[in-house]
């Protein structure tokens, strides 16, 4: 029996936030991100029979998503015509030299920070995966969506003191998990 099995009906609850945060920093557009994730789910269902169970479900979904993101950039690139490299050689000081036009460096420090923070976000979501499902969703509503205590209590039909106990457990588990995997 393979170590990991697929359970498509749980994909959205388990991985959609993870996939979304992975995508959003790479395409920077919510709608595009959502479309890419839809395509990923469809492609995953189609190729589910090829899943060998060697990787975890999430790793496997991410590998499909990566291809979708690359395809997306290929498509918009070919729509523009090929990527252009402009050259100018009539610079006062470097006359005759063919210099590529200066391109802003996309990988400057802020971009790197951004990427690292995104990875931190993914690590947090990964840790949330390993705690009690209900606790995780209550924690997400409270911490990530910033929903009111009262709203969440109504949604999950719990009392405020239940909520704070759940938040406490979730935070403790999460802190321990991050301590192990990140800090």
């Amino acid at each position: 029996m393979p170590a990991n099995e697929l359970d498509p009906n749980k994909w959205v609850d388990k991985y959609s936030d993870y996939l979304f945060n992975y995508t959003i920093v790479r395409v920077n557009d919510r709608e595009v991100a959502n479309d890419l994730i839809s395509e990923t789910f469809l492609a995953a269902l189609k190729s589910a029979k090829y899943f060998k169970g060697e990787a975890s479900e999430r790793t496997w979904l991410i590998s499909i998503l990566k291809r979708k993101i690359i395809d997306y950039y290929r498509k918009i690139n070919s729509r523009k015509g090929k990527a252009e490299v402009r050259v100018n050689y009539t610079d006062d000081y470097n006359e005759g030299e063919w210099l590529e036009e200066q391109v802003p460096d996309q990988f400057d420090r802020t971009a790197e920070d951004e990427m690292e923070n995104n990875e931190l976000g993914l690590a947090i979501l990964e840790c949330l995966d390993s705690i009690n499902e209900k606790h995780a969703s209550i924690f997400k509503r409270k911490t990530i969506d910033g929903a009111d205590t009262e709203t969440i209590c109504n949604e999950f039909n719990i009392t405020p003191s239940n909520l704070w106990v759940i938040i406490h457990r979730a935070r403790t588990a999460l802190a321990a998990c991050l301590e192990k995997n990140w800090f």
């Binding site: 936030d17 945060n21 959003i24 923070n117 997400k140 911490t143 990530i144 802190a175």
Partner: peptide, 14 residues
Amino acid sequence: KLTEAIKKSKIQSC
């Protein structure tokens, strides 16, 4: 530290 990390990571939910 956890609060700080969550803030920094800018996690969004769909």
